[in-house]
Amino acid sequence: MSAGAVLDIRGLGVDFLTPRGRVHALRDVSLQVPRGSVVGVVGESGSGKSTLILAALRLLPANALILGGEVVLDGEDVLRMSPAALRDLRGRKATMVFQDPSTSLNPVLTIGRQMIDIQYRDRVPTARKRDRAATMLRKVGIPDPATRLDNYPHEFSGGMRQRIAIAMALLCNPDLLIADEPTTALDVTMEAQIIHLLRQLKSEFHGSILFVSHNLGLIAELCDRVVILYAGAVAEEGSVHDLFHRPRHPYTQALLECDPARLAKVSRELPTIPGDVPDLLAAPVGCAFAPRCPKVFERCRREAPRLVADGDGHGAACHLVPAIASSRVGPRPSTGSGRGPPVEPVET
């Protein structure tokens, strides 16, 4: 799969140096974005989603320490390239749409200026770049784009700003578009509009998309594959269909049960996963989800599970995985359940 991957992250580890100590934000995370596909990343706040995608373009803040691993974008290791090569790659091979459109655009420059600036590589007249920008704005649904290019970000609504941010990212026609929770900072109606836009653009845009979101429904709809992050490590990954229909990791199962959109019955209280995300100041011993896991057993607290993937690329980092896979899915020819390490589930 890696041969055809636009983005291939392998064994990435990132620590943050904070006044409180070293925060282990990412531990041995691997993720592939196959060419032309949409990969979703899901996780709670603090699970390392943002760290992961910032690392993909080496945009991590100065206090981040990359412990190891590689981030291969179009065949080149982003983490080991010269600053000049990195700058050349950003905005050409990959661009990013950030979470909060009220802060991600420059407040003192017109959006036209910003959209023309990002085309600085193209040796065409400025008027041509302006036309391109206007065309792209129209495509994302900004009315009267030629005039609105002379407006400043604060003269647009939040939803409009996020459309502009998306237009900017698409203007570069990148191989990989990274979207960091593009709907989280918006209110519900704006969110619906942006989701509609993303849906529409997905069919037109031929590059790959790495999509980070809280919104499980959105992920299910837009993505081909999903990666579930928990406490800085991959808990489960697989195709959208496999993962949503046959979640293997207890965390994924709990997460899906919490999604209001999937609730079968109307209940008075929204279901939650009891407990908190572990403090990543100390690397967890054993499985990071063990303290909150309903199916925890003795081995979980002792030994960190490894990601076990079957032939479909559906894998989960859980000691129960082979057992769960076989019990839930039944005998599937491609499931590697029989070859997994022997596990004795212990009910607690």
């Binding site: 700058r87 950003r90 991600s104 600036d117």
Partner: peptide, 9 residues
Amino acid sequence: RTARAFGLP
């Protein structure tokens, strides 16, 4: 960060 993400000089 956005400006840098677009690879501006």
